[in-house]
């Protein structure tokens, strides 16, 4: 017999029943797969239909960073320490991997902002927006990686068996980026300051991560580099890609475990904050 579903809305927070909330979260996630895919396809199609250079835009930014640093290092303005990899390979892998993390970090706030209109008027599983962002990040990363691997082959680097683990490295970059992005989204939707401050801050963090130059060997800066949770994520992904054994595997696994846990928290926070954010959007 047809038993209609019952929907109830009360002022109480659903945190008071965490288990039910988790079940609901995963149910909504499953329900929004179709929507997430559809929205991602829409955005990707629209993006490429309006641009001649299309795919190229995905790696122009990391490419320009690479060229800048090659120039700085080559002219001796800044002297970068010895790297095990040829320096151009070091920068290009670093910047592309870093840009994947940054893309993942920007996605939740960007996507939520872009969907304001829909959010304020329609009730659909909000996870669809996050999924759509995730799919787009993965799509763009795929393109960047294809280019990156071609570039490596040209530069004479043959990835070893570690390449099989490399997708894990990418997933962990996306995971860490998404967690940070999700955590700042609720506040970022209220105050635009967040959207401006975070990229600046991350720019700073980039220089504390072995992205464009290698880890300092000693001093308090070296310690800072080693504590920085981005370090193992970038290094491990790069090692897997270029055929070196990863040095920071344990720390890498630890950071990912914490990130997974934070993901659940950030995701719940996003859901719980949404009605309050929508209250403050125009209808």
């Amino acid at each position: 017999m047809y038993k209609p579903s019952v929907t109830t809305y009360t002022p109480h927070s659903s945190v008071s029943n965490p288990l039910a909330m988790l079940v609901q979260m995963f149910r909504d996630l499953a329900r929004s797969r179709d929507l997430g895919w559809r929205l991602a396809v829409r955005d990707i199609q629209a993006q490429y239909r309006q641009a001649y250079l299309g795919v190229i835009w995905a790696f122009i930014a990391p490419l320009s960073t690479t060229i800048t640093w090659l120039f700085l290092n080559g002219t001796g303005i800044i002297s970068v320490g010895e790297t095990e990899l040829p320096y151009p390979v070091y920068i290009i892998t670093g910047t592309i991997l870093w840009s994947i993390m940054i893309d993942a970090m920007n996605a939740p706030l960007q996507q939520t902002n872009a969907a304001r209109d829909m959010l304020a008027k329609l009730n659909f599983p909000r996870e669809g927006i996050l999924l759509s962002g995730l799919y787009q990040v993965l799509f763009n990363s795929g393109i960047k990686l294809i280019i990156l691997i071609c570039a490596l082959l040209v530069l004479g680097i043959t990835p070893g068996w570690g390449l099989l683990l490399f997708p894990l490295g990418i997933l962990s970059l996306v995971l860490v980026g998404t967690v940070i992005g999700l955590l700042i989204t609720p506040i970022g939707m209220l105050y635009t300051d967040i959207g401006r401050a975070v990229p600046l801050f991350m720019n700073f963090v980039m220089y504390l991560t072995p992205v464009v130059f290698p880890m300092p060997k000693e001093g308090w800066v070296a310690t800072l580099f080693q504590i920085n949770p981005m370090t193992p994520i970038i290094l491990t992904a790069r090692d897997w890609l270029t055929g070196f054994p990863p040095d920071y595997l344990m720390y890498f696994l630890g950071v990912n475990a914490v990130a997974l846990f934070l993901l659940i928290l950030a995701w719940s926070a996003y859901r719980l904050a949404m009605p309050i954010l929508i209250e403050r959007m125009s209808s």
Binding site: P4, V6, T7, Y9, T10, P11, M118, L119, I278
Partner: peptide
């Protein structure tokens, strides 16, 4: 279900649709 009430309760049975924003998305 877009925003939460501060007091009171809403109970609805069955599939809910809103014809509010046409052409959303």
């Amino acid at each position: 279900g877009l925003i939460k009430p501060d007091q009171g309760q809403i109970t609805m049975r069955g599939r809910i649709n809103a014809l509010i924003a046409l052409g959303a998305g």
